[in-house]
Design a protein around this nucleic acid. Structure first.
Length: 332
DNA sequence: CCTCCACAGGAAGCCGGGGGAC
DNA sequence: GTCCCCCGGCTTCCTGTGGAGG
């Protein structure tokens, strides 16, 4: 039944993106000056997860690349590269300028000089999960680099903007904000139809079933596509076509898979904290730390735990209610 | 109203790992 | 090998805030 498993992967980047034409056009027009060698403003893509921000950013850059020979691009995931140094390193890496840069023995100054000396073709970088950056200093260095333009991606840009100091604020105030709303049922259905056409045998699934999946995914394309794949895999073992019973089971599986993927990026200590919080309705810092330090061998300090919790909150794995004294942490 | 305390998060410094230079 | 340097995770120290209780 499955003819091409790759297109059923939520991470897969299709040749033709369906939906989001307006966003693609807007992003292209923001980046157009850069491609033509003129200074361009940055773009900030924001919205809930599974709304196609990363996909549209990569897709748009691919298209620009096809129409322009002289263009460098780079994708940086700030969850993985969150320090000042590693972001710079990754960005120079996209220019093949890191050959003689060594992680441990090259001062950041050298990387900065090299970046500021850049005078090649236009360079467009995607900073995905930009709200995960340790410090926004690196953004300042980037906005004042010639020939470099940025696409910033963040769930909640307001949280990110509050961390900007004045000089950065004035530079990024003119950035074009592109908002990504949750997909409508029709839009999700269209996306699923496209994936089903390339990834499944004809007639393996009905439009009504795709609509049902779209409805269950509540606007999140990752959930929708994951559900379709789970249902197809389940059906593959048992029948010729996807049955409704396969759909029912696939939704929680797809959601669990996404959650599992998120959790796998956590460290051991972060995972322990996450598990404690998801096992309760809501918990205070004091109780949480007591449980945590009883559970692990060499507990980190409270200060470090606060950093972890901030990270988990940013990543929407847990939520916190209240400020200061009396704050509680709870599952989402 | 005042003091105490739980809690958040910034700043600075420590230290272990790891690679280059010699 | 040994020395030196750098990064990044971590701790320590600190300040600010606001609810609880005298």
């Amino acid at each position: 039944m499955i003819t091409d498993a790759r297109v059923l992967d939520p991470e897969f980047l299709p040749n033709d993106v369906v939906q989001r034409d307006a966003e693609i056009n807007l992003l292209s027009s923001v980046l157009r000056p850069a491609v033509e060698g003129n200074p361009s403003d940055s773009a900030v893509l924001h919205g809930p997860s599974g709304t196609g921000k990363t996909c549209i950013a990569q897709y748009t850059l691919d298209k620009l690349h096809q129409s322009t020979l002289e263009l460098n691009t780079q994708y940086v995931n700030c969850w993985e590269d969150h320090s000042h140094f590693s972001v710079l390193y990754r960005i120079l890496d996209g220019l093949d300028k890191t050959l003689d840069i060594h992680r441990q023995s090259t001062p950041q100054e050298v990387l900065l000089d090299r970046l500021h000396d850049y005078d090649g073709p236009p360079y467009i970088i995607i900073l995905d999960e930009a709200d995960q950056l340790d410090t926004t200093d690196v953004l300042y260095e980037l906005v004042r680099t010639r020939k470099l333009s940025m696409i910033l991606i963040a769930n909640d840009p307001d949280v990110m903007y509050t961390r900007f100091d004045d000089r950065l604020d004035s530079r990024l105030r003119t950035a074009t904000r592109i908002e990504f709303d949750a997909y409508s049922i029709d839009a999700l259905t269209a996306i699923l139809e496209d994936r089903a056409r390339w990834g499944l045998h004809p007639d393996a699934v009905t439009t009504e079933q795709l609509q049902w999946i779209a409805d269950a995914a509540v606007g999140d394309a990752r959930v929708a596509i994951g559900t379709l794949r789970q249902a197809a895999q389940r059906a593959d073992r048992e029948s010729e076509t996807i049955l409704d019973e396969h759909l029912e089971a696939a939704v929680p599986e797809a959601k669990a898979e996404i959650k599992q993927k998120n959790i796998s990026r956590l460290t051991r200590d972060q995972r322990v904290l996450y598990n404690i919080i998801t096992d309760t309705d809501s918990i205070s810092m004091g109780d949480l730390y007591d449980q945590y330090s009883a559970e692990v061998e060499n507990p980190k300090t409270k200060r470090m735990v606060r950093n972890y919790l901030q990270k988990l909150t940013h990543y929407n794995l847990i939520e916190s209610i209240g400020e200061h004294r009396g704050r509680r942490y709870q599952p989402v």
